[in-house]
Design a protein around this nucleic acid. Structure first.
Lengths: 203, 203
DNA sequence: ACTCGGATTCAACAGGCGTTGAGATCAGGA
DNA sequence: TCCTGATCTCAACGCCTGTTGAATCCGAGT
């Protein structure tokens, strides 16, 4: 609100404007909490204090803005070895602890939530989610341990992880949202561990 | 296409028109595959071969149409005792087998998928999903067995069930979609069984 | 035979959407 | 100092949306 005249001015603003980044921040927040379809370019522009057409100028298309905004803030290649490194023992717990920590840390601007919310009824976003969760993370994990049917095991893990996101962050199931994090790490960790290492044919 | 004149006629059609039901069928299908927001009244009317305003005449509002269409085709009170009856042994497997059978049977007009697809970014639908999954099914199951923290156990089960729906039907993870049903019943059944009966504090 | 009322369509509204093109403004290199 | 090009706004376009009101049609009860 340091406007020197009384009304909005056109043209370039003085100083180093971090406008592009603030558009990306607003987009992350809107896409994450409303999904691709419901989040509007106009609302994102409004949040960033900017005209909608400036968004188009920077990113060209709503779809392209979505792709740019849902870029993951950390590189899986950096973090996965850190989780897998200590060995198979406790691997499930480490994965779940990492996931829950990330969710709490990212808050409302969480690309994983944006992808889940958009994947529903939007095949392109479903593909992005599949690629991120599967190829970037779980396939590496499943490959690090040595077991039969690694892809099926990765899919099993993905189903529980997506379920955690849906139930805790989107459906907001009350007991699950209120539960102590380490309790969940224990329960879900054992599930993931089973999906990764135990025999898949029930005895 | 048994039109006696060459063009569409106004007014009441001859014979016993099951129009209301065919609108509901179309709505179930559209809401299930696209979610509340993306499914349009016009498309539903088109599928039913009817003018959009007739949909409003019957149901008043898109929201009311959604509620009517997402009514579950079977009554949980009828089926849950059938699943719980035989006792705690194999309860998880019976639940998962019932769920997967239902999904295959209902196909593209599955209210559970419609609710999941709409819950995302639509709090009213999230509440409907919560009420159906929790109060109608899982709370009864958790109450039937006797264990500590029954609500948390119900939420844990819900998280895996929703995850199965997301991963298999919406994300379409390939190995999961292709997997033999009884294999999944074994793997997921054991998970649900754990969530229902095993101690929640990891040893 | 005659009305009555539900079924059905048509045409339109008001609002929101993504996107576009033209123009204004200014930072920084020549 | 002037010019270039990036940044930014305004106004508008065409489209799609849920919803409405009026007009038509016809089966059924009297």
């Amino acid at each position: 609100m340091a406007d020197t005249s009384g009304s909005a001015r056109r043209g370039r603003r003085p100083g180093d404007s971090g406008t592009r980044e603030s558009i990306l921040d607003a987009a992350r927040s809107r896409f994450s909490s409303e999904g691709f379809r419901s989040a509007t370019v106009r609302a994102i522009a409004g949040d960033a204090g900017v005209d909608p057409s400036l968004v188009m100028h920077f990113f060209g298309t709503k779809q392209a803005l979505f792709v740019a905004a849902m870029e993951f803030p950390i590189n899986p290649a950096d973090v996965v070895p850190h989780i897998v490194g200590p060995g198979v023992d406790g691997l499930g717990e480490r994965l779940v602890r990492f996931l829950l920590g990330l969710v709490d840390e990212l808050g409302e601007a969480n690309p994983m939530l944006g992808l889940v919310r958009s994947a529903v009824g939007h095949p392109d976003a479903a593909r992005m989610m599949r690629e991120f969760l599967g190829e970037a993370i779980l396939d590496r994990v499943a490959a690090a341990i040595e077991a039969d049917r690694p892809r099926l095991r990765a899919d099993l893990c993905a189903s529980q992880i997506v379920g955690i996101l849906m139930a805790r962050q989107i459906l907001a199931l009350p007991e699950l949202a209120a539960a102590d994090r380490e309790t969940l790490v224990g329960v879900y960790g054992r599930t993931i561990q089973r999906y990764l290492t135990e025999p898949l044919d029930s005895p």
